[in-house]
Design a protein around this nucleic acid. Structure first.
Length: 809
RNA sequence: GCGAGAGUGGCGGAAUUGGCAGACGCGCUAGACUUAGGAUCUAGUUCCUAUCCGGAGUGUGGGUUCAAGUCCCACCUCUCGCACCA
């Protein structure tokens, strides 16, 4: 029962497609009329559930709203189609990942269409197809030319289950972000992008992203992890080995009582040659590394072992012992720490445990070094010529002094590592590089792109790229000398594909270049980007990096890709993220079958603040279904309205209409408060029901109804279009202007005042808007007579049009 | 530990930014219409005081103010991100 949504939704979806409502001619749109509305493109793994739908429904509401606001809205859609899940699913089913992927794409496309989400499907892109990855490869070559793509042997993160390496960003708490397997370290020769060259700009430009959520910006800042300090060298005894330490607390340099290095310190073997206890130390180090692997992030005790060697503190010539400690990690700084137990809690704990000296060099009366380290500022002591200075001032002076003497230098350290992009898997874009015995590493000439991913039957992960076994692919001739040579067999991380797709949408079929700079410069930055917060670091930082590189190449006139970012919250069910394995997935298709797409869309928008996680409630969906039926039935009510009405009722209805327009417009413009926008439209509908028998004229009721439809259109376009036409309108809603509100209707002659006594509400009065002070005071006193009789009135506070507060004693 | 965000009825959540706390929706209660109701409509629904009259109330404890969910101080709890970051 209920309104005939099935027929209605089918009709308008067909109409939009036929009229090409969502297709944009990017070349002809003037710059001040363009609006690029982008949702993060999906990975076509399986059917979409309502959690995914939230992303697209929000995006569609924004696009349709902006269209009504007079913009030419570009809203494209594509597929992030390379990657491990496709490969794993294909292996499981014994089919090719491409077939599996393309089948899913068709299925998901149907889903999106059935939800009434409008996209310019003529701009559809699929990253696993050669006409797209040709340009991913081209971009790799540009990076290579600029020295931003390089190969090096390094300890890398290895997922033994996925049988491939992972970027640092893909390791979560020591585990693979995909399969949660503990990640191992392996020494491998791999391709990297030099994102660290851009660390400072990626950090600094975050400040310009004023329309990004604070949370995302903070996460990126933390990830980049800048810290400023000094790198100082401690010579090892009489050898020529120097232990370089990074510190942000150079003011404590005179308090160094030992130096401690990581168990897997890079020059550990050379150092151990000098140590009398090498055997013992190796055993200790192995144990620490093993422990760390099993129990990452929760090491309780500071354990260490003395190497028996000494290093020299260059600033005072003191010999201090060299230790190996479990609390030092190779990945940060230099893997060696100058330890100052008096002023660093970790060093303090270590020193206490191993009976190492604690020398105070920053004096503060609040410090008690018997209990813990003093990490705040203070006055310099035991620090030679720097004694008496404030420790903050001393930092600068000591750094300069160390540089003068050549003991070290100021250094900025970043936590950010270079981006490891090689993957030993099949389903990705081949890295366009050839290895020739004579010429060395030779990039594939641009005219030979794309390097086609060969069709293979066997692509199980073995730890080596499956392409290694494809002879036709592997062997080629050197572009430089023509000799027989081998191709690179690793493929690229899929995050490379998604780091530039927003540029490709502007000219998706261009066979001559990756993107059209002139058009891209007109259409980007993206006006509104919408997606899940899970991409806060990976995708969003890589895309920013790409944009900056392309800007430096002169191909773009902007260096931040996304002007405004909105991260929608997750939809959870029974307290958990929706997933097949948990069996708590809500399928939009069954909802649509029962209530229609508009009900699903509106419920998703109404469920809560869109940037927060929300709990799915099947019952609450019915509330929306009831609401839309009430909306639908307003048409019948309209037919029975009298031509003539009464002034009061007409005014009340019009006032509600205009205040609703004002409220909804605000919610749309300011921060996507769809939930409150919807609830205020519900109030309007309630008002229309309330006044239907109170003498509202038919034309007033009709005007109210039409404005209501305009407000609803971005949320529930099908029912809106249908009602619009049934009410006799000819012109389509998608190009109809958004309604304006008229302050004149919001003005009131008489307002209600709250009367308080000592801040407590004791009554209400109605008074003319222009009522004078005395008049209001008199009426207010009269209203709350019984509360103030026999008491003296101290003060009367009047807030115009709101309240009167009488202060009595 | 650092950083970000959040704590409001039985539930999801509102509150024009210092001015009637609980909009809107779910659920619940009662009634109407019905052979019937998991349809629809009407009324009610923060708690205590059985009603009235009142009183209390936005995580806790203080404070500022005529007036505090909102501002200030201290604390507690939860979620997320990073984490022996030197």
């Amino acid at each position: 029962m209920g309104y005939p949504f099935k027929e209605i939704e089918k009709r308008w979806q067909g109409y939009w497609e036929e009229k090409r409502i969502f297709n944009v001619d990017v070349a002809s749109v003037p710059k001040d009329k363009k609006y690029y509305s982008l949702v993060m493109f999906p990975y076509p793994s399986a059917e979409l559930h309502v959690g995914h739908a939230r992303n697209y429904v929000i995006g569609d509401a924004v696009s349709r709203y902006k269209r009504m606001r007079g913009y030419s809205v570009l809203s494209p859609m594509g597929w992030d189609a390379f990657g491990l899940p496709a490969e794993n699913a294909a292996i499981k089913r014994g089919i090719h990942p491409r077939d599996w992927t393309l089948k899913n794409i068709e299925r998901i496309k149907e889903q999106l269409k059935s939800w009434g989400i409008g996209y310019d499907w003529e701009r559809e892109i699929t990253t696993c197809l050669p006409d797209y990855y040709k340009w991913t490869q081209w971009l790799f070559l540009q990076f290579y030319k600029r020295g931003l793509a390089y190969k090096k042997k390094a300890a890398v993160n290895w997922c033994p289950s996925c049988n491939t390496v992972l970027a640092n960003e893909q390791v979560i708490e020591g585990k693979c972000e995909r399969c949660s397997t503990l990640v191992e370290q392996r020494e491998l020769e791999q391709w990297f992008f030099k994102i660290t060259d851009y660390a400072e700009r990626l950090l600094k430009d975050i400040d310009r992203l004023t329309e990004w959520p604070e949370r995302v910006k903070t996460m990126q800042r933390n990830w980049i992890g800048k810290s400023e300090g000094v790198e100082i060298e401690f010579p090892l005894g009489s050898s020529d080995i120097k232990i370089r330490c990074f510190t942000t607390r150079i003011d404590t340099i005179f308090g160094v009582t030992y130096v401690v290095i990581a168990p897997d310190y890079q020059h550990i073997d050379k150092i151990l040659e000098l140590s009398p206890r090498a055997q013992e130390i190796r055993a200790f180090s192995n144990e620490v590394l093993r422990q760390r692997h099993i129990d990452r992030g929760s090491i309780a005790e500071k354990k260490g072992i003395d190497t028996g060697l000494y290093v020299i503190n260059p600033v005072n010539g003191q010999r201090v012992p060299l230790w190996i400690g479990n609390y030092v990690v190779t990945e940060y700084g230099t893997g060696a720490v100058m330890a100052v137990p008096a002023h660093d809690q970790r060093d303090w704990e270590f020193a206490k445990r191993h009976n190492l000296k604690i020398i105070e060099v920053i004096y503060n009366s609040q410090a008690n070094l018997n209990d813990c380290a003093w990490e705040d500022r203070g006055t310099m002591v035991n620090s030679g010529k720097f004694n008496g200075l404030d420790s903050e001032d001393a930092k600068e002076k000591i750094a300069a002094w160390i540089e003068e003497n050549g003991w070290g230098r100021r250094k900025v350290n970043y936590r950010l590592r270079d981006w490891l992009i090689s993957r030993q898997r099949y389903w990705g874009a081949p890295i366009p590089i050839i290895y020739c015995d004579k010429c060395g590493v030779v990039p594939v000439p641009e005219e030979d792109l794309p390097v086609i991913l060969p069709d293979v039957k066997e692509f199980r992960p073995t730890g080596e790229s499956p392409l290694t076994y494809v002879e036709d692919f592997l062997y080629t001739s050197c572009p430089s000398c023509g000799a027989k040579s081998r191709r690179e067999t690793d493929t690229m991380d899929t995050f490379v594909d998604s780091s530039w797709y927003f540029l490709r949408y502007i000219s998706p079929r261009d066979e001559d270049k990756a993107f059209d700079s002139a058009l891209v410069n007109k259409w980007l930055p993206v006006d509104q980007y919408i997606g899940g917060v899970e991409h806060a670091i990976l995708h969003l930082m890589y895309s920013r990096f790409f944009t900056k590189v392309l800007y430096d190449m002169g191909l773009l006139s902007f260096d931040e890709p996304f002007a405004r970012l909105f991260t929608q919250g997750m939809i959870v069910k029974d307290g958990a993220k929706m997933s097949k394995s948990k069996g708590n997935v809500v399928s939009p298709d069954s909802l649509i079958d029962r209530y229609g797409a508009d009900t699903m869309r509106l419920y998703i928008l109404f469920i809560g603040p869109p940037d927060k996680d929300a709990e799915w409630n099947d019952r609450a969906v019915e509330g929306i279904w009831r609401f839309l039926n009430r909306v639908w039935n307003l048409m019948d009510i309209y037919d029975t309205m009298p031509e003539e009405g009464q002034g009061d009722a007409n005014r009340a209805v019009l006032k509600k209409v205009h205040s609703t327009i004002k409220k909804v417009t605000r919610d749309m413009d300011i921060d996507f408060h769809f939930n409150t926008a919807v609830s205020s439209i519900m109030e309007l509908v309630n008002t229309l029901y309330e006044y239907r028998a109170k003498g509202v004229a038919k034309n007033v009721f009709g005007a109210a109804l039409k404005n209501m439809i305009l407000l609803l259109y971005p949320f529930v376009p099908h029912i809106s279009e249908e009602m619009w036409r049934r009410l006799g309108e000819e012109e389509a809603l998608d190009s109809h202007p958004w309604p304006d509100y008229d302050e004149a209707y919001l003005k009131e002659d008489v307002v209600e005042y709250v009367i308080q006594v000592n801040g407590k509400v004791r009554g209400h009065i109605r008074a003319a808007v222009d009522a004078g002070k005395e008049e209001l005071e008199k009426a207010a006193k009269q209203e709350v007579k019984r509360y103030i009789d026999g008491k003296s009135v101290n003060r009367i506070i009047i807030v115009p049009k709101k309240l009167v507060n009488i202060v009595v004693k």
